[in-house]
């Protein structure tokens, strides 16, 4: 154990791999000292594990209706109660996590590379490329996110796939702006000049020298905006434009049970709490990552 630690923390690593892992381990050591961020990480991991292993963890079939037991309060049999069709809320929450968190991950995977590429190319190339790319970005930024997503989904057909595409379409501009700002600060640095003097092409410089430096703030931005994506997805679901019933999705769950908010408050409140907890966890995680990854903080 201690030899692994020494291998990681050595001042003179003997291979590329060792140097890279050593740096990751140092960051982890620093991250571990941040209590709130560790809390965020733990909660996020629990939520994701819950979603991944939903079929094993869920006590009941999330679609199984039992009208005799509808709107039951939490009990030993139904840990979080049941909804208006008597379906077990805890099971639906676990399965809903698959849909909601899956949408978030899909959006992030779509959005981050687009934003990164658009921003860093605009920032590095400058001139008309910068102007064109950034005006396009501004157009997308100018329209409110939810409305643009709504318009897009209604043009396609409501469903998870179109919701993901719609959210991705509206979520990339901030990433591009961030990547461009990062690129501008490093574009005139000596190490980029040195890279140009090796004779490297513009593509190589952007891909090998600039994007790796934008990556850390991109990761941070991703975790910070995950909560926003959850809320947009929930909003679309709530408006009937996202996941369609009976599919369990946290936003849709609130939408379909909103009539019971006064009499059986836990039915809409439980998915609401799930959204809140997930958002909070990702936010705390993002804050912690920023402290570790942002080179300017050091």
């Amino acid at each position: 154990m201690s030899s692994t630690r020494d291998w990681l923390l050595t001042d003179a690593p003997s291979s590329r791999r060792q140097a890279a892992w050593g740096r990751r381990y140092r960051r982890w050591l620093q991250f571990r000292t941040n209590g709130l961020a560790m809390f965020g990480l733990t909660v996020a991991v629990i939520l994701i594990l819950g979603a991944v292993f939903a079929p094993l963890l869920a006590p009941q079939n999330p679609g199984a209706q039992n009208l005799a037991m509808r709107l039951a309060p939490p009990s030993a049999q139904h840990w979080l109660g049941t909804d208006e069709l008597g379906r077990d809320l805890f099971s639906r929450l676990l399965y809903g996590g698959r849909v909601t968190l899956g949408m978030v991950v899909a959006v992030v995977i779509l959005v981050a590379p687009i934003g990164l590429l658009v921003g860093s190319v605009a920032g590095y190339a400058g001139g008309w490329a910068d102007r064109v790319l950034m005006r396009v970005t501004d157009v997308f930024l100018a329209v409110p996110q939810l409305i643009l997503a709504l318009a897009f989904v209604s043009a396609l057909k409501p469903g998870i796939t179109s919701a993901v595409i719609a959210i991705a379409l509206t979520a990339w501009p901030p990433y591009a702006r961030q990547a461009r700002a990062d690129t501008l600060t490093i574009r005139h640095s000596d190490f980029i000049a040195a890279a140009r003097l090796t004779g490297a092409s513009g593509t190589r410089i952007v891909l090998h020298h600039i994007i790796p430096l934008c990556l850390s703030s991109m990761i941070v931005r991703m975790t910070l905006s995950m909560s926003g994506i959850i809320l947009t997805a929930a909003g679309l679901g709530f408006l009937g434009m996202g996941a369609q019933p009976p599919m369990p999705e946290w936003g849709t769950m609130i939408a379909t049970s909103r009539a019971f908010i006064l009499a059986q408050w836990w039915v809409p409140a439980i998915p609401g709490i799930a959204i809140f907890v997930a958002s909070l966890a990702f936010n705390l995680l993002g804050d912690g990552l920023r402290d570790v990854l942002d080179p300017r903080q050091r």
Binding site: R16, A19, D190, F191, A193, A195, L213
Partner: peptide, 11 residues
């Protein structure tokens, strides 16, 4: 400033 902060000397 002239060495990339995220790259090893080898790189």
């Amino acid at each position: 400033g002239s060495l990339h902060p995220g790259q090893t000397i080898d790189r």
